[in-house]
Write a protein that binds this DNA or RNA. Structure first.
Lengths: 152, 152
DNA sequence: TGACCCATGTCAGCATTCTGACATAGCTTG
DNA sequence: CAAGCTATGTCAGAATGCTGACATGGGTCA
């Protein structure tokens, strides 16, 4: 189409490239999760629960980078379908600790393998040093964006 | 809350970190664009048009990482509000080349400055070498995710 | 030329996520 | 102890984005 070599500056923006990479990763994850009937947020929630059992709704929301209202909708569906359980009453405060059911754990296994293969494909062609560099640089970007770089 | 140092493996995943960085960038952009009454997709569309005048709806969609249906809805609103113009009939094929109006260009100026300040904050604390490394590594990740690494 | 394929623009319906708002639990502080 | 602050869970409504579907323009190829 109309994409002759017009002067394009977006191609030099790290922000744009970051968005592109994240979009590509999300698309690749959706592609392998769709056959399993699972969305990315769906999977993120289960994975978080597998690694940190007993997380509350709000904690899961922060870990999956969505609002607690969005996570609440998802948790209600997951609970209804028998993937997770929450106590009827909060043991302390209002936070309801959530846990995977055996069914949830089983469902996660296949999804987790699929996602790991996507991440492996993404990292193929990167040396160990490059992966360490990427990790350190991304962490520093996040730190700066959160405004933790005051008074300096 | 319940976040004592439980063993967490998500903290070692580059995919998770990439999602976190992208989420932080998006949140920071939304924060500075909100006072201007502009969303991230809204801004992305205008910025693309400023750098590549005459892009079609489908091309804009690919550049902003949304579907062409989503971009079409946005373009109709932008056209209605006088930020962009599209010819009534396609000069060739079905693609309608879109262009910024003076009003659109003026609206973009403030937004572009705000977004540049966010990107500058994100990159603060990174050396020139680190920025080049990040650029190269992200490009390679995107390339691998798109499956361009066959036969090897 | 005609059949086929691909890309585009667009309409309609659905899914997902967000913002706003409210009540409650627990901690902090005077 | 009482007031205030923060965090949480939850409901309701709105915005945003996506999937599915259809018609059309243009190129390819037998």
């Amino acid at each position: 189409m109309g994409q002759e070599g017009v002067g394009v500056d977006l191609e030099t923006s790290l922000g744009y490239l970051l968005k592109e990479a994240s979009s590509a990763l999300r698309a690749a994850m959706e592609e392998v999760l769709r056959p399993l009937g699972m969305s990315v947020t769906h999977y993120s929630c289960l994975e978080l629960l597998a690694q940190r059992p007993g997380l509350s709704n709000s904690e899961l929301a922060r870990g999956a980078f969505v609002t607690r209202q969005t996570m609440n909708v998802l948790l209600q569906a997951l609970e209804r379908d028998g993937y997770v359980t929450r106590p009827a009453e909060a043991p302390v405060g209002k936070a309801l600790p959530t846990r995977l059911t055996p069914r949830g754990r089983q469902s996660l296994e296949k999804a987790s393998a699929a996602v790991r293969s996507v991440e492996a494909r993404m990292l193929a062609g990167l040396t160990g040093t490059e992966q360490s560099d990427a990790f350190r640089i991304l962490q520093r970007m996040i730190h700066s964006l959160h405004g933790d770089n005051e008074g300096a």
